[in-house]
Amino acid sequence: MDQMNKTILLVEDNPDDVKLTLRAFKRNNVANPIVVARDGVEALDYLFARGAYAGRRGKALPALILLDLKLPRLDGLAVLKAVRAEELTRLIPLVVLTSSKEEQDMVQSYTLGANSYVRKPVNFSEFLEAARVLGIYWLMINQAPPEPLQA
């Protein structure tokens, strides 16, 4: 599959952050389709083709998950745990993208199998740079694992 068509799943509840993240990727010429899940349950529904996303059965899984930690309903760490627990999704690269740099968040994220932990800086210029590096690394440089289809 073409690098540019790989989907990115952005799990983020704050609409400002969604907009800014999308803008950051766009400005860095990351043209991949980005799906936004606004809470943990929605993210898992999308990944496992349940609920509103039941129609996605058999469709391709995202090539990268960007996961905020503080989410309504089901928080980021629970999503991470569920993703890593499922055979289908356990190899998908997952980057924790969050406000906090609390030690407990970092340690737990890595323990549960996050591939990367990025703190969203207040300075948007710095965030642009972070988004650029993320796009280059995870979508271009990094060799993704063989891609399974939705069961």
Binding site: L20, R23, K120, P121, V122
Partner: peptide, 8 residues
């Protein structure tokens, strides 16, 4: 988060 919005 609000600061990021203001700056962004």
């Amino acid at each position: 988060a609000p600061l990021r919005s203001m700056d962004g």
